[in-house]
Design a protein around this nucleic acid. Structure first.
Length: 111
DNA sequence: ACCATGACGTTTC
DNA sequence: CGAAACGCCATGG
């Protein structure tokens, strides 16, 4: 199993997500240059649980701010609770004012 | 080397 | 406007 891979890039970005901010898989994918592989980002997060680092995957949602992978956090509304804990309003697994909390690594993060 | 999977995204019906 | 199908790329078996 390779630690260094596309996944690690996703981890780096995910870890750099500011508190109270959220981003989309497509944004990360686009930032990594593989915008067409937004699924890979999600899958990378799936492997994130294998990473020893703290991956705030709860801050990563789909393009509409829907908590698609919330069941991967334990099955309950753990993800929602985490987001609300950061001041983000979540209703029906969907982030309220997603655009307002949206954090684009390609724009706000200059590497 | 090939087939199957995956927390998405976009387009079409 | 809502749902479904296809596309897309990387990893694992």
């Amino acid at each position: 199993m390779k630690e260094l891979s596309f996944f690690e890039l996703v981890y780096e970005v995910a870890k750099q997500i500011p508190y109270g901010r959220v981003t989309s898989y497509g944004a990360i994918a686009s930032y990594l240059g593989t915008k067409q592989s937004s699924r890979m980002v999600g899958w990378a997060m799936n492997s994130s649980h294998n990473d020893l680092l703290n991956i705030p995957a709860h801050r990563v949602v789909n393009r509409i701010g829907l908590l698609t992978g919330k069941h991967h956090f334990g099955g309950n509304d753990v993800m929602k609770q985490l987001l609300e804990s950061e001041g983000i309003q979540v209703v029906d697994n969907q982030i309220v004012d997603f655009e307002k909390h949206f954090w684009d690594p390609a724009k706000e993060l200059n590497l």
